Computed example of a mutant assay.
Amino acid sequence: MDAWHPRDLRGAGRDPPDPRWPSGARLALQFVLNVEEGAERTVLNGDDGSEDYLPEIPGTGRRLGQRHYSAEGFHDYGARVGFWRLLRLFETRGLPLTAFAAGRALELNPEAGAALTERGHEVAGHGYRWIDYRDVDEATERAHIARTCRIIEAATGRRPVGWYTGRVSPNTRRLLVEAGGFLYDSDAYDDERPYWLSEGGRSHLVIPYSLVTNDIRWLLSPGCATADDFFALLRDAFDVLWAEGRDRSGLMSVGLHARISGHPARIAAVARFLDHVADHDGVWICRRREIAEHWIRHFGVNGN
């Protein structure tokens, strides 16, 4: 059994631990902004071709050996426009974010890292490149983790304590544990509460993420076509978890991307969801770093 990637169908079973969120909150709500633009596949980054995951441009595919100007523009919009629109939205509401930032994205656009820091948001690592790390050898991935940490620290003044690769290799989590200094990673979709993994006296906290309450639904079929669709998806998930929180507090993750939710027709759904949340008490809106610190403080390393 791989200790860092166990297949555990039981989890906490019928009696999961009470998270004991601050102020007795019945729900912890955490927003992630993925900062990936510039780190995607492109010949400009030394790849053999261009990004091919472009549902907004039907019929397109990877173009080997050449630039794909439409694909570049789709991503560039996120960095040039969408990122700032989302930051303004959360700034006007006084709400915190955790950014999953690819090292290459901040390397090309360090102003984004500085802006996140100025507004008090957390910046976690998201790989050096926004690529599938199953195709990357162990030595290169180890170097990418170290390089990303240096880039984030240079851009924000603080080394990342969280990590989310997204498309992990069999080595990713072990390399993070070996590197040290991380409070958590979020490369998991198997639970709604944090949990511990351990091997050989080393422990590692996992804070699961979600691809359901995530704006990637805009680009999948069947998915969201209008702001009403995405708002309803987020609202319904929130309402269920908030109701369950009377007896058992939970955690909800919302994943956003600047090149997706940063468009005017889509950010409307995020704004409406924030209005909906504001109408409810007992909600702790937080950074992922704070979830990790809370879990360690209340349950101890490798606690239950």
Rank of each mutant, 00 (worst) to 15 (best):
P170S: 11
T172I: 13
R173E: 03
R174M: 13
L175H: 04
L176C: 07
L176F: 06
L176Q: 04
E178I: 06
A179C: 05
D185C: 10
S186K: 09
A188H: 12
Y189R: 13
D190W: 06
D190R: 10
D191E: 10
D191V: 07
E192L: 14
E192T: 15
E192A: 15
E192F: 03
R193G: 06
P194S: 08
W196G: 10
L197N: 06
L197R: 13
E199H: 13
G200V: 10
G201M: 10
R202C: 05
R202P: 01
R202L: 06
H204F: 14
H204I: 05
V206M: 06
I207H: 07
Y209L: 09
S210C: 09
N214V: 13
N214D: 12
I216K: 10
R217M: 04
L220Y: 09
L220H: 11
L220I: 13
C224D: 14
T226W: 03
A227T: 11
F231T: 07
A232T: 14
L233N: 05
L233F: 04
L234I: 13
R235M: 04
A237F: 07
D239S: 12
D239L: 14
D239A: 15
A243P: 02
A243Y: 00
E244M: 11
G245Y: 04
G245P: 05
R248H: 12
R248D: 04
S249P: 03
S249K: 03
G250Y: 04
L251E: 03
L251W: 04
M252I: 14
V254S: 09
V254L: 06
A258I: 14
S261P: 01
G262F: 07
H263L: 14
P264L: 15
A265P: 02
A265R: 15
A265T: 13
A268Y: 00
R272D: 04
D275T: 06
V277D: 00
A278G: 15
H280C: 04
H280R: 14
D281Q: 03
V283E: 00
W284G: 01
I285D: 00
R287S: 08
R287M: 03
R288C: 08
E290D: 12
I291Y: 01
I291R: 03
A292V: 15
E293T: 05
E293V: 02
